[in-house]
Amino acid sequence: MEYLSIFVKSIFVDNMIFAFFLGMCSYLAVSKNVKTAAGLGLAVVFVILVTLPINYLLNEYLLKPGALSWLGEGYADLDLSFLSFIIFIAVIAAIVQIVEMVVEKFSPSLYNSLGIFLPLIAVNCAVMGASLFMQQRDYANLGEATMFALGSGIGWFLAIVALAAIREKLAYSKVPAALKGLGITFIVVGLMGIAFMAFSGIKI
């Protein structure tokens, strides 16, 4: 039950885009058509799903206060949490690099559709943000953290596909010249966010 609640909550209520604005840069840049948007979305789901559990374990056994106690009594007081930003971002950058190489080697077709997005993802705030939220919310075990990763990723995926679909239609509407492109996109995302607010208040 706990898992389901974390999963649903991170997709709808704590949506990375609509509630926290994470990953906005690539969200706005790559949402002009549904196909590429879906590609980027999938890549984000994938990278969050791989990096977050790794960062969870690092946080649990290396970074948080008292995390090093498995090394012996003398290490129980150490608090390395000041290193967490740098470790998280290093893990993310490294994983993205490795994933890129692996995908390129073993599945050139997937690489062609996903590959161009991978370098973008290293600095996608949604990925880093997910790790930081994981640390702040202090999930009880690896399962919960993974559920959160999956939910956040899917939430991001849904958000970008939905926006891309709207923007495709938007091309046919009459928008004031100065508002065209970026301006109206921001407002659309804002309105979508208000719609998503309807989900807050749900408890599972």
Binding site: F18, A19, F21, I187, V189, G190, L191, G193, I194, F196
Partner: peptide, 8 residues
């Protein structure tokens, strides 16, 4: 105060 307003 709600987040979406910032975007708008």
């Amino acid at each position: 105060i709600m987040p979406p307003m910032a975007l708008i």
